[in-house]
Amino acid sequence: MKFAKTAIRCAVFLGLFAPLVLIAQVTAAAEPPSSDSDKAVESPIPAVTDGGDCPTLAAMMREHQAATARDLRQIKRDMAMLRQSLDKPGIAAIFSGIGYIFGLFGVAAFVASRSKKN
Protein backbone atom coordinates (compact mmCIF):
# COMPACT_ATOMS: atom_id res chain seq x y z
CA MET A 1 0.00 0.00 0.00
CA LYS A 2 2.79 2.37 0.99
CA PHE A 3 4.63 1.49 -2.19
CA ALA A 4 1.58 2.32 -4.35
CA LYS A 5 1.21 5.71 -2.64
CA THR A 6 4.83 6.55 -3.31
CA ALA A 7 4.45 5.47 -6.90
CA ILE A 8 1.42 7.73 -7.36
CA ARG A 9 3.27 10.61 -5.77
CA CYS A 10 6.19 10.07 -8.12
CA ALA A 11 3.87 9.94 -11.12
CA VAL A 12 2.15 13.21 -10.08
CA PHE A 13 5.51 14.85 -9.47
CA LEU A 14 6.79 13.81 -12.87
CA GLY A 15 3.57 14.82 -14.60
CA LEU A 16 3.75 18.26 -13.03
CA PHE A 17 7.41 18.96 -13.49
CA ALA A 18 8.43 17.09 -16.60
CA PRO A 19 6.91 19.80 -18.89
CA LEU A 20 8.75 22.48 -16.93
CA VAL A 21 12.04 20.69 -17.30
CA LEU A 22 11.34 20.21 -20.99
CA ILE A 23 10.66 23.92 -21.41
CA ALA A 24 13.85 24.75 -19.56
CA GLN A 25 15.77 22.41 -21.83
CA VAL A 26 14.21 23.86 -24.97
CA THR A 27 14.98 27.46 -23.95
CA ALA A 28 18.51 26.46 -23.00
CA ALA A 29 18.97 24.81 -26.41
CA ALA A 30 17.44 27.77 -28.27
CA GLU A 31 19.93 30.20 -26.75
CA PRO A 32 23.23 30.38 -28.58
CA PRO A 33 26.21 29.85 -26.31
CA SER A 34 27.44 33.40 -25.76
CA SER A 35 30.00 33.47 -22.98
CA ASP A 36 31.64 31.38 -20.31
CA SER A 37 29.62 32.87 -17.49
CA ASP A 38 26.39 31.71 -19.15
CA LYS A 39 27.65 28.12 -19.46
CA ALA A 40 28.33 27.99 -15.75
CA VAL A 41 24.69 28.82 -15.08
CA GLU A 42 23.19 26.54 -17.72
CA SER A 43 25.26 23.41 -17.30
CA PRO A 44 23.53 22.06 -14.15
CA ILE A 45 20.13 21.94 -15.86
CA PRO A 46 20.60 18.72 -17.89
CA ALA A 47 22.00 17.03 -14.84
CA VAL A 48 18.71 17.28 -12.94
CA THR A 49 16.42 16.09 -15.75
CA ASP A 50 16.62 12.46 -14.71
CA GLY A 51 15.80 13.14 -11.11
CA GLY A 52 16.02 15.88 -8.49
CA ASP A 53 13.58 17.50 -6.21
CA CYS A 54 11.34 20.45 -6.69
CA PRO A 55 13.09 23.20 -4.64
CA THR A 56 16.48 22.78 -6.32
CA LEU A 57 14.81 22.71 -9.71
CA ALA A 58 12.91 25.89 -8.93
CA ALA A 59 16.07 27.55 -7.65
CA MET A 60 17.93 26.59 -10.79
CA MET A 61 15.16 27.91 -12.99
CA ARG A 62 15.12 31.13 -11.03
CA GLU A 63 18.86 31.44 -11.43
CA HIS A 64 18.55 30.75 -15.12
CA GLN A 65 15.86 33.34 -15.46
CA ALA A 66 18.04 35.88 -13.66
CA ALA A 67 20.88 35.15 -16.05
CA THR A 68 18.56 35.59 -19.04
CA ALA A 69 17.24 38.86 -17.63
CA ARG A 70 20.80 40.07 -17.17
CA ASP A 71 21.65 39.23 -20.77
CA LEU A 72 18.47 40.90 -21.99
CA ARG A 73 19.32 44.07 -20.10
CA GLN A 74 22.77 44.07 -21.68
CA ILE A 75 21.26 43.64 -25.14
CA LYS A 76 18.77 46.44 -24.53
CA ARG A 77 21.59 48.74 -23.42
CA ASP A 78 23.56 47.84 -26.56
CA MET A 79 20.51 48.56 -28.71
CA ALA A 80 20.01 51.96 -27.12
CA MET A 81 23.66 52.83 -27.72
CA LEU A 82 23.39 51.63 -31.31
CA ARG A 83 20.28 53.72 -31.89
CA GLN A 84 22.05 56.76 -30.45
CA SER A 85 25.04 56.26 -32.71
CA LEU A 86 22.71 55.82 -35.71
CA ASP A 87 21.23 59.25 -35.00
CA LYS A 88 24.63 60.87 -35.42
CA PRO A 89 25.38 62.06 -38.93
CA GLY A 90 27.94 60.03 -40.78
CA ILE A 91 31.13 61.25 -42.37
CA ALA A 92 29.48 61.17 -45.81
CA ALA A 93 26.78 63.63 -44.72
CA ILE A 94 29.37 65.97 -43.22
CA PHE A 95 31.52 66.10 -46.32
CA SER A 96 28.54 66.39 -48.63
CA GLY A 97 27.41 69.38 -46.57
CA ILE A 98 30.79 71.05 -46.85
CA GLY A 99 30.77 70.31 -50.56
CA TYR A 100 27.30 71.85 -50.92
CA ILE A 101 28.46 75.02 -49.15
CA PHE A 102 31.56 75.44 -51.29
CA GLY A 103 29.55 74.62 -54.40
CA LEU A 104 26.83 77.15 -53.59
CA PHE A 105 29.31 79.92 -52.89
CA GLY A 106 31.34 78.90 -55.92
CA VAL A 107 28.29 79.32 -58.14
CA ALA A 108 27.58 82.66 -56.45
CA ALA A 109 31.15 83.79 -57.10
CA PHE A 110 30.90 82.66 -60.71
CA VAL A 111 27.66 84.57 -61.26
CA ALA A 112 29.13 87.62 -59.52
CA SER A 113 32.23 87.55 -61.70
CA ARG A 114 30.13 87.20 -64.86
CA SER A 115 27.87 90.07 -63.93
CA LYS A 116 30.92 92.20 -63.17
CA LYS A 117 32.37 91.46 -66.62
CA ASN A 118 29.14 92.42 -68.33
Partner: peptide, 9 residues
Amino acid sequence: LPKIAVVTS
Protein backbone atom coordinates in the same frame (compact mmCIF):
# COMPACT_ATOMS: atom_id res chain seq x y z
CA LEU B 1 32.50 84.86 -51.08
CA PRO B 2 35.38 82.41 -50.44
CA LYS B 3 35.72 83.66 -46.87
CA ILE B 4 31.99 83.32 -46.31
CA ALA B 5 32.10 79.79 -47.70
CA VAL B 6 34.90 78.75 -45.35
CA VAL B 7 33.26 80.31 -42.29
CA THR B 8 29.91 78.77 -43.23
CA SER B 9 31.40 75.31 -43.46
